[in-house]
Design a protein around this nucleic acid. Structure first.
Lengths: 244, 244
DNA sequence: CGGAAGCTTGAATATGCTCAACACGGGTGG
DNA sequence: CCACCCGTGTTGAGCATATTCAAGCTTCCG
């Protein structure tokens, strides 16, 4: 983890917006978008930007939590582990998602950086006080929770009822929809934010099965793959058709 | 569906509690518990108790929704279906859960009565207005949503990473924890609110596999089964140990 | 260039699925 | 009252899909 320089002085050209927040990717679409100027200023005085390498643990299972965070960029994976080590990824969070389970003093899952991740850490007590005083903030967090619940249920169908190839197609489609891919001649392309191991843990498969399905998609010209990570999808429509 | 007699006159002995609500199982623990007396009275004037038989559809996928509901008793299953008919149960709701996705004009899933179910229907607009005016109600619904998200993620581990026998054990443990079982000498016993088909759709298995796992649990003396539906668990601790 | 980590491929195996037959229980009608 | 039927659940045999285990290949980085 690396702390990033945080300048708290006001920007003279944006008199009321804290300097740290001026160029923030998450200011408008994340939770900060619903804060009043004075609230944002107050919050920014307690916030801290941090940078994390892939694989780094952000929140541990059964660990005391003293801060929430906004994801500024990168992908965070939420995982659960069985006693014997079997692991399941139960959620992915992208910018500008809010990270952390509101009102819980202990986390019931692990949050790890899947890719390089930059967070804006927000003290637990400050956020909880803001939530109590600003109904718009509570509403925004409620909305995100409802969206996450919808996504979790959608994914339960994938886990419970889809075949290995449908699972991998669904995963690629999901990433293509989130990782703002660059449109190219004859398709869209993007970098996978997850390793094969993470993909397997997300899909409830083994890495070998995931790998074989990638190979199958390559052979049937649905995707091209470079360096194992960079994927080009010929047609999102075709990919969607393979999702079951 | 059968409409149940709804008496709107005030109960003289409970001057401020609507007659319909006096003996309601959900009044204190469901959403009604956070309403002021005048709000409860107003809401009760628009509420309607309905009774449903097992298998009856309560809310259809992609159907316009004009009412929410509180589950008074019975079990509601939330399902999603793939084009080719494969089905996945993505949630179970027990009394006094609130039923319906807030703020969505269309449902993205099916809600069906798994057992006999009694609902208290609440008009969409009335609830949404109450939510806007009563922060306690919003908070209560937020809490339920967070709980459902936790449960969904817990279940994703079961779907993605557990074996067939661990899945069935987990299901029995889940039901035993919700269906207020009667403690007996040497164990607890309860009725399954779901058919083998529903259980299979919940666990991402086939009915044959579910059936075989029940047989295995019977042969190894973990459970006793009567009439396919009535289950007695020797030891919840032992069962928990089989959940993976 | 060498080593390590991550990924792919192959062969053998196991777990859960498919298809088919049968059992059980509850309701209906002769 | 019994025969029959239908819905639901169980059991069995063979099969398919995904896993396991093992080897080899890329890619990255020193």
């Amino acid at each position: 983890m690396t702390e990033v320089f945080t300048e708290k002085r006001r920007d003279v050209h944006n008199s009321s917006v804290p300097r740290v927040c001026v160029s923030c990717e998450a200011r408008h679409h994340g939770i900060c978008g619903v804060l009043r100027e004075d609230e944002l200023l107050e919050l920014s005085r307690h916030s801290l930007q941090t940078e994390h390498q892939p694989g780094e643990e952000l929140i541990g299972d059964a660990e005391d939590v003293d801060s929430y965070a906004t994801v500024l960029n990168g992908v965070v994976k939420l995982t659960k582990i069985l006693q014997d080590g079997r692991q399941q990824v139960v959620g992915l969070q992208f910018a500008p998602d809010f990270l952390g389970r509101l009102f819980a003093s202990q986390s019931s899952l692990n949050a790890d950086a899947a890719s390089k991740v930059r967070l804006c850490r927000l003290p637990k007590s400050t956020i909880e006080q803001l939530v109590r005083n600003n109904p718009h903030l509570e509403a925004r967090l409620f909305e995100q929770t409802l969206r996450e619940l919808d996504e979790a249920r959608e994914w339960m169908v994938t886990l419970g009822r889809k075949t290995a190839s449908e699972k991998v197609a669904s995963f690629l489609y999901l990433i293509a929809s989130h990782a703002d891919p660059t449109r190219e001649v004859g398709g869209v392309s993007f970098d996978l934010p997850l390793s094969r191991t993470d993909i397997a843990d997300f899909l409830g498969l083994t890495i070998e099965t995931v790998s074989r399905q990638f190979t199958k998609l390559r052979s049937s010209n649905v995707i091209e793959v470079q360096n194992h990570r960079h994927v080009k999808v010929r047609s999102l429509e075709q990919l969607k058709g393979l999702c079951g």
